Amino acid sequence: MSAVEDRLAELGLSVPEVAAPVAAYVPVVQDGDLVYTSGQLPVVDGKLGATGKVGAEVSPEDAAKLAQTCALNAIAAVKSQVGDLDKVSRVVKVVGFVASDPSFTGQPAVINGASELLAKAFCDAGAHARSAVGVAALPMDAPVEVEITVSVR
């Protein structure tokens, strides 16, 4: 097990199997030293953790937990490509999408769920650039979606 997986285990988490794509794409692609994940939904055991809009059917606090699940699924996609998560030298970029009620403006706090997990898992290498974007809808009525780009050695 990698040091990254050990840190996740200390949080009571483990790297899941890679979630199956819901359309015509692959979960992860590597180009040189960069590994790009497709957008990851908050899927656990093949099911979404929740559905609906944040600020309406889903609370911001629950959405942040779902964003953490998305990040864990992104970590799984990276592991499926590189094998050993200790090969990750940096989390470069995180892009988070939040299906938002029109009056909801707390997207950054929601995506902190993903960012904070990545910081705990990868320590200093987990510090990253980020975008947190509110959108009208996401696939399968998911409340959040997260994609990451990492650099590997």
Score class of each variant (00 low, 15 high):
A125W: 01
K47P: 00
P16M: 02
V18G: 09
K93N: 11
L34N: 07
K87V: 00
S89G: 08
L118V: 06
D84L: 08
G39Y: 04
V58P: 04
V98H: 00
V95T: 01
G49N: 07
M140A: 13
D45A: 14
C123W: 09
A114K: 05
V4H: 02
V54H: 06
A127T: 09
L138D: 08
G126P: 04
G49I: 01
G52M: 08
S103M: 13
G113C: 10
D124T: 15
E145F: 05
G96A: 10
D86E: 06
N112Y: 15
M1W: 06
A125L: 02
L66S: 10
K65H: 07
D33C: 08
R130H: 11
S89H: 08
N112C: 13
V91P: 00
K93L: 14
G106I: 09
G134P: 08
D33R: 11
S80F: 06
Q107R: 10
A77V: 03
S131R: 15
I75K: 01
P108D: 13
V150R: 00
V26N: 13
P27S: 14
A9D: 03
A9W: 00
S14Q: 08
A19W: 00
L48M: 10
V4K: 01
D101F: 14
P21V: 06
V135M: 13
A127K: 13
M1Y: 05
F122K: 01
L118Y: 02
P108M: 13
R90E: 10
V54T: 07
V28K: 04
V94A: 09
D6A: 15
L11W: 04
A77G: 10
G49E: 05
V18W: 05
V35E: 04
P60R: 14
D124G: 15
I111W: 07
K47D: 14
S14H: 02
G32S: 11
N73E: 03
Y36D: 00
S2H: 00
V94F: 13
A19S: 07
A127P: 02
E10G: 07
D84V: 03
A67I: 05
V43F: 03
C123K: 15
A129K: 09
L118P: 03
P21S: 15
G96E: 03
G134W: 08
L34W: 05
V110F: 10
V54E: 09
C123G: 10
